[in-house]
Amino acid sequence: MPMPDTQVEKVFRTFIQDGHLTRFPAKRARRRILLEHIASSFEPGRRFPEKEVDVVLRAWCAGSETDHVTLRRYLIDEELLSRSDGEYWRTGGWVDLAPSV
């Protein structure tokens, strides 16, 4: 069930600044909101080499207390990304199915 927009917006305002994480929430529910948002950086149905995943996650972590390896581990632990043989792919999170205008 999706979170109310006001709760999601509050989490974004609190933990994201200028497109980067400022810090990582201690509460799992807030962390999940952020992780789902970050997982949307990866196109569903596509496999990504680890180096490409790291570039995306380093950009999210620039200036943050969180490092990209920890972020990657959280994404896998929450089953938003999966990995095998050095490749990663998106396995969870929200996907916008509305056609782009």
Rank of each mutant, 00 (worst) to 15 (best):
I76E: 05
A39N: 00
E9V: 12
T6P: 08
T14R: 15
S82I: 04
K10G: 07
Q17C: 12
R13P: 05
R13M: 09
G45H: 13
T6M: 11
L21S: 00
E78G: 01
A39L: 01
P99H: 10
V56D: 00
D67V: 14
G19E: 07
R32T: 05
W94Q: 05
P49T: 08
P44T: 09
S100V: 12
C61L: 06
F24L: 14
S64A: 14
G93K: 00
T14Y: 03
R13D: 11
S64F: 07
S64I: 06
I76T: 10
T91C: 06
T66Y: 06
G86C: 09
R72K: 04
F48M: 08
S40K: 05
T91L: 03
R31H: 10
G86S: 09
L34R: 03
E65K: 10
I16T: 06
E78V: 02
P4A: 12
P99V: 12
P2M: 13
G86E: 06
T91P: 00
F24V: 09
F15K: 00
E36A: 04
R83C: 03
E79V: 00
R73K: 13
A26G: 11
W94S: 07
T91A: 02
H37V: 06
D18N: 15
W60C: 05
I76D: 03
V11L: 11
A39F: 01
R46N: 11
R73V: 08
E43W: 12
I33T: 02
L34Y: 04
A62R: 13
E43G: 08
S100F: 08
D54Q: 12
V8E: 07
S100A: 14
D67F: 15
E79D: 09
V53I: 07
Q7L: 15
R90C: 00
H68A: 15
A39W: 02
M1E: 10
P2R: 15
G92L: 00
R46W: 12
T91W: 04
T22S: 05
G63F: 08
E78R: 01
P4Q: 13
T91M: 02
F15G: 03
A29N: 08
P25Y: 05
P4K: 14
H20F: 09
I38N: 02
S84W: 11
E36V: 04
R32C: 06
D85I: 06
E87Q: 13
D77V: 06
T6C: 12
G63W: 08
A26N: 10
K10S: 12
G63K: 11
P2Q: 13
A29T: 13
I38C: 03
G19Y: 05
W60D: 01
L34F: 09
I38W: 02
A39C: 06
T91K: 00
D77N: 15
G45C: 11
L81C: 00
P99Q: 08
L57N: 02
M1T: 10
G93L: 01
P25F: 05
K10L: 12
H20N: 10
S82N: 09
D85S: 14
